[in-house]
């Protein structure tokens, strides 16, 4: 009986600890530069919001939208080496700094709206030319999401290198970065 009481007291303690954690977490969140909203939005939903913020009117583009094309390592390598396309790195910026495909510009999926604004002029001038996007590897969705975002913003020839950084670095191809 005594142990049951102890157990009950412990459970109340756990509940109090959890409540205190929630309060502290919400307070810390408010102090962040970009507080996390209380309701979760999926990666796709966040990307759509970012695209709509960059270009609020995308409906006419959607009607004639091209789909991103998947390219192989050989095709991607040809684009990079012969500078036939603008290359975008959709991974978080820190990974880009650590190492990236030569000439690649960092356009992280998570910070799309801010970084896109920085390269808006360049990307808009490439609307009818090849834009190749990659992320970490075949498991990551970032390149697909960024590519779809670019298509919605009116880019006509968006290419996705699904092998990503894993395949590029695994093939011991040239790298830039730290």
């Amino acid at each position: 009986m005594k142990n049951v009481t102890k157990f009950g007291k412990d459970m109340i303690g756990v509940w109090l600890l959890a409540t205190a954690s929630i309060c502290v977490a919400l307070l810390i969140n408010q102090l962040r530069d970009h507080p996390l909203p209380l309701v979760y939005a999926s990666k796709t939903q966040r990307m759509e919001t970012a695209v709509s913020k960059v270009a609020p009117v995308v409906a006419p583009v959607l009607a004639t939208m091209d789909h991103p094309q998947i390219i192989s390592l050989e095709e991607f390598r040809d684009l990079v080496e012969n500078k036939k396309a603008i290359v975008l790195d959709a991974r978080p910026e820190i990974f880009h700094r650590l190492g990236h495909v030569p000439g690649a510009i960092s356009l992280p999926r998570e910070d799309f709206e801010n970084v896109y604004a920085k390269y808006k002029g360049l990307l808009e001038s490439y609307r009818d030319q090849a834009i190749a996007v990659y992320c970490s590897g075949s498991n990551c969705e970032d390149s697909d999401m960024v590519a779809n975002g670019l298509v919605k913003l009116g880019c006509h020839r968006v290419l996705v290198f699904k092998g990503g950084w894993d395949q590029w670095s695994g093939a011991k191809l040239p790298q830039e970065g730290q």
């Binding site: 205190a20 954690s21 502290v24 977490a25 810390i28 996390l36 209380l38 309701v39 979760y40």
Partner: peptide
């Protein structure tokens, strides 16, 4: 979705405490 972000914020604080 209403619970996910709250958990993502609170759980790390709970673990640290």
């Amino acid at each position: 979705n209403e619970v996910i972000n709250l958990l993502a914020l609170s759980l790390p604080v709970f673990e640290i405490i």
